[in-house]
Amino acid sequence: MQFKKYQHLERYGTDDVTDIEFGEVLIFPKLDGTNASVWLDDEGNVKAGSRNRELSLEKDNAGFYEYILSNENIKNYLEAHPTHRLYGEWLVPHSLKSYREDAWRKFYVFDITIDKGEESVEYIPYDIYKPLLEEYNLDFIIPIAKVVNGNYEAFLKSLDKNQFLIKDGAGVGEGVVIKNYNFYNKYKRQTWAKIVTTEFKEIHNKAMGYNEIKAGKMIEEVIVDEYCTEAFIEKEFAKIVNENEGWTSKYIPMLLGRVFSELIKEETWNIIKKHKQPKIDFKTLNHLITQKVKMTKREIFS
């Protein structure tokens, strides 16, 4: 098998996950680490990947590849199940620092797939892969709840129950992931939904009369307010730090470019739908995003 990128989690309520709530749904904690994967190549060698590429010992995703190569349990699992690909979260510090001390630098499996061709994969349901992982003493993310024919309010309640690996009294996790193993969207893709805790708080604040968008704002300002959040910026900053095993000022252009490009890739469709195909000046948008990054990360621009 070759490297295969993990699916993009869609915001709950968007077209890509319309009707995912109907039927039996599992709600999982969303960890704030770095996306990673493990598989066997055609010669039986253990391989590992980050979100976007296959890893090497020189570029090993904050120590992940070295960890995998020294983990006999993962090797034994893959040798017993050579068609399986493990996706999970390598828990190293990003924007959320409230995980227990004993939780860091471990690989928590959140999905297992079987390749069904160049593009197609089959997701193995949690109730099937759970005993397989337990047999080899591998770490995995445990669901918060099972919901049948749920709704937005039911999923929001799970946000406050996300205490997975969190220190006592240190709040809640990054958010939740909603999985329905029988759901395929209108594009015939098996897709999961997400709700992020910071987004929920912002929605709640707006409902209470705070942070309302003022009349007369340019659409580019509205986009930055809604989507270029401090949490979003901190997450991209943490990715760069982990990829490069540290931070220096030479990465500032990378950070500015990364925040802009990732926002465009992740949110363009949502912006088009919410704001009815707005006319956007991307030069202005890029300028405003750069300002927001500089305000959020003052310490690295001083």
Rank of each mutant, 00 (worst) to 15 (best):
A48R: 03
R298I: 05
K217I: 02
E226W: 01
S158K: 11
S261C: 01
S302E: 15
D19C: 01
I128E: 15
D102E: 14
I280P: 04
T83V: 01
L57N: 08
G257R: 11
E43R: 12
I20T: 05
E122M: 11
V121W: 01
L165G: 13
N185Q: 08
R105V: 00
K106L: 04
R100C: 10
W247H: 01
K75Q: 14
R85H: 02
I219F: 04
I27G: 03
H204T: 14
P253N: 08
I142F: 00
F22K: 15
E266A: 08
V25Y: 04
E54T: 04
Y129H: 08
V38K: 08
P143Y: 11
L255Q: 04
D16Y: 07
K188Q: 11
F22Q: 15
N149G: 04
G246H: 09
A36H: 05
P125K: 14
Y65E: 02
Y251N: 05
D139W: 07
S70T: 05
V121Q: 06
L138I: 15
A154Y: 01
G169C: 13
S50Y: 06
W90A: 07
L26Y: 13
T284D: 03
L156A: 13
E234S: 09
F140H: 15
K106M: 05
Y6D: 02
M218A: 14
F22R: 14
N162L: 05
L132V: 01
N71V: 04
T284H: 00
K201G: 01
P278H: 06
E266I: 02
M1Q: 06
K279A: 13
D15V: 11
E243M: 08
D168R: 12
L156T: 10
P125A: 09
Q163T: 15
G49H: 03
D32Y: 08
K47A: 06
E66Y: 04
T284Q: 11
R11H: 13
A207H: 09
N205V: 01
R11D: 13
Y12C: 02
R100A: 14
H94T: 12
Y129R: 04
N242Y: 02
T34F: 08
Y181E: 13
T18A: 15
Y227P: 01
K30Y: 05
S158Q: 15
A154R: 12
T229K: 11
I213K: 14
N35P: 00
A36F: 06
